[in-house]
């Protein structure tokens, strides 16, 4: 019984995270929301393993727990190399992405 309650509590938390990810408004809100959704998914998968009584499902939760944060590191690195452009995009002033830090931006 308590496990079912936990599952529904996790679903509610995921919905709140989803709201934050969609509404934003800042990029950082969304990154944090994605990270939180990842954590909640790990927990939900673990809870499902107990609901279905299938301990091998825990492998999945383990896989998520191990590599969930790699995306966040990529976001960090992305910010570091394109910080100025993202600030421009955040203030909704489209175009004008030319004043980025010199030497930081290679590909464009």
């Amino acid at each position: 019984m308590i496990i079912q309650v936990v599952a529904f509590a996790l679903i509610v938390t995921m919905m709140l995270g989803l709201v934050r990810a969609i509404k934003g408004p800042k990029v950082y809100d969304r990154v944090l929301a994605v990270n939180m959704m990842g954590t909640k998914t790990v927990l939900l998968l673990a809870v499902l393993a107990f609901i279905d009584d299938r301990p091998d499902y825990l492998d999945l939760a383990l896989a998520y727990a191990l590599i969930n944060f790699i995306g966040v590191f990529a976001v960090l690195e992305f910010f570091r190399t394109r910080e100025s452009q993202l600030v421009i995009a955040e203030t909704d002033d489209t175009g004008e992405a030319s004043d980025e830090a010199p030497g930081n931006e290679g590909g464009k």
């Binding site: 990029v27 969304r30 990154v31 959704m37 998914t41 998968l45 499902y57 998520y64 995306g71």
Partner: peptide, 21 residues
């Protein structure tokens, strides 16, 4: 905003994995 789309696609992937399970 494509960065938002990338973040949301991350969430989509998490949710669809839960759905598969």
């Amino acid at each position: 905003h494509l960065f938002v789309t990338v973040m949301l696609s991350g969430i989509f992937s998490l949710l669809i994995a839960a759905s598969f399970l």
